[in-house]
């Protein structure tokens, strides 16, 4: 832990809108602990989000932040990082934001492998719109919108990240803040796209997620760098194993490096 800065130094005075007992408080706390641990200057960090309960996070962190539109956090983050590689850029949001409306950006962010950290607070439900199934919701979960359940097989975030080319894949749990902090620290330190899915219970619309405390447990093995091994572990898991599952130092995105020219010489090209 850096002597000079404390986690609370990274908190703003804005009170979260989250319900009591919301899992998202754990990610907020883990993130401020991470920033303090890494001693990152606040003005060199940007937290980018979309729309949803968890996407409110940037306003609660005393860094630069961008609270954009639903589903596009990764696009804003990619543009910011490409334009300003000197910044530490963290994208954050929920399962609806990241896996449904923003699903395409998730695939391509994994492929592009920019040096970004993406934290998804997954509660298997749309909270802000008051309780509809998200891509990770169980098919038989009944809501006003889906009286018979969605009938759809849940989205597999870790498997999709793996097959799309992410080089750092982890699952955290709001009920285990220490591990979550470590994962975010490692994710930020990882060179390339790091994906951290966080089991983040919703006490309001999914009170049964209290059971996650009993179900969540560490992966049985150390993280692997073999994508085939990682795929086998992910597909044979019930979605409750936590920790880093896969890390592979794939080359991160880099800007091109053609020799410099000035605009006047470029304009010469048009001369007849």
């Amino acid at each position: 832990m850096n002597e000079m800065v404390k986690p609370k130094d990274y908190k703003t005075d804005i009170k979260p809108i989250w319900c009591p007992g919301c899992g998202d408080f754990a990610t907020l706390s883990a993130l401020t602990k991470t920033l303090a641990y890494l001693g990152l200057p606040k003005h060199e960090v940007a937290v980018v989000s979309g729309i949803g309960c968890s996407s409110r996070l940037p306003a609660y962190i005393d860094s630069y932040g961008f609270h954009g539109v639903h589903g596009r956090a990764l696009a804003v983050a990619a543009g910011l990082k490409a334009a300003r590689p000197d910044l530490t850029v963290i994208a954050a949001g929920g399962d609806g934001d990241g896996y449904s409306i923003g699903g395409n950006h998730f695939l391509h962010a994994c492929r592009r492998n920019m040096d970004l950290t993406y934290i998804v607070m997954d509660n298997h439900v749309y909270g802000m719109t008051k309780g509809q199934p998200s891509p990770t919701t169980e098919p038989d979960w009944v809501s006003k919108l889906t009286p018979h359940g969605s009938g759809l097989r849940p989205f597999q975030p870790l498997a999709i990240a793996l097959s799309s080319g992410a080089g750092f894949i982890a699952r955290g749990f709001a009920g285990d803040p220490l591990t979550l902090t470590r994962l975010i620290v490692d994710g930020i330190n990882h060179r390339g796209f790091s994906f951290i899915e966080v089991l983040s219970p919703c006490p309001t619309f999914r009170p049964e997620q209290k059971q996650w405390k009993q179900l969540a447990r560490p992966w049985q093995q150390e993280a692997t760098s073999d994508p085939i091994e990682a795929a086998m572990r992910i597909h044979s898991d019930d979605g409750m194993s936590t920790g880093l599952i896969y890390q592979n130092n794939l080359p991160p995105w880099q800007p091109g490096t053609m020799p410099a020219r000035d605009l006047a010489s470029i304009e010469q090209e048009f001369l007849v």
Binding site: A46, V48, Y64, F66, G68, V69, G71, R72, A75, V76, A77, A78, G79, L80, K81, A82, A83, R84, L87, N104, H105, L107, H108
Partner: peptide, 20 residues
């Protein structure tokens, strides 16, 4: 950057411009 779609392109340039 070649974006994955136009939703991404407009948000990418917004992110970059936010970056100055």
């Amino acid at each position: 950057l070649q974006a994955e779609d136009e939703l991404a392109s407009v948000n990418m340039i917004t992110g970059a411009s936010f970056g100055g």
